[in-house]
Amino acid sequence: MTSPTPIRIGVMGAHSTGKTLLMRRIEMELRCQGIPVARTGKLGRRAALVSLPKMQHHTVASTTWVIATGIADEIAATARLEDGPVQVVLADRACWDALAYFRAAQEWRRQPAPQADREAPHRLASAHGHTYDLLLATVLDPGLPVEHKHDHDARYRTLVDLHTHDLLREENIRYVRVTSDPASQELVIEHALQLCATQAPA
């Protein structure tokens, strides 16, 4: 018998804007409520392990790898846990995220890829990108510090933020903006919890 489809919540946005922390907090709250949840992530670190270019050096190949791997992780996350089927999947870097990073990299290098090459990762993201029940997009606060692990280029980081929100508007995707204001983050967490409490499969 096929298990009910879990709630899918994705997050995207420029690096060091609180994406992972936000997902960890939602995960912690869901677990406290006894809701089985799985969280995906660490795509950037795994891409580096296989020597794929990152950040402003993103290519069509690296972008396709990140999108495909993220989708595979989300699908795998729906597997049964010991205490029952997963009811919520939290995607730390929704599939649209890699596409925004790629577009930002092209603008940063001032070297746009051929249209045919640009279309391939877009088709892949588009095929999966409309399955999120809730999509969150962080808003860059230039005043916040950048984590040491990130290759920090202020211009590229700004471009990622720009392309993140432009892409979602172009695709006519409903999403929730999350600023660095703690009140904004609390509202988003509460929104996610209410969604999961009312719509997560039993």
Rank of each mutant, 00 (worst) to 15 (best):
S3F: 04
I7E: 00
G10P: 06
G10S: 11
V11W: 01
H15D: 05
H15Y: 11
S16M: 03
S16C: 07
R31D: 09
R31N: 13
Q33L: 14
I35T: 11
V37L: 09
R45I: 12
R46G: 00
R46F: 02
L49Y: 08
L49P: 01
V50H: 05
P53K: 02
K54E: 14
V66S: 14
T69Y: 04
D73W: 04
D73N: 09
A76Q: 14
D83A: 06
D83Y: 03
G84N: 09
V88D: 05
D92H: 00
D92V: 01
A94L: 01
L99P: 00
Y101T: 03
R103S: 04
A105N: 05
R109K: 15
Q111F: 02
A113F: 14
A113G: 06
L134N: 01
L134A: 01
L140T: 04
L144Q: 15
P145A: 12
V146D: 08
K149Q: 13
H150F: 14
A154L: 09
A154I: 09
R155Y: 10
R155L: 14
H163T: 13
L168Q: 07
R169N: 12
R174T: 14
Y175H: 15
V178D: 01
T179N: 04
T179R: 05
T179P: 06
D181N: 14
A183H: 11
A183D: 12
E186G: 00
I189K: 00
A192K: 02
C196N: 05
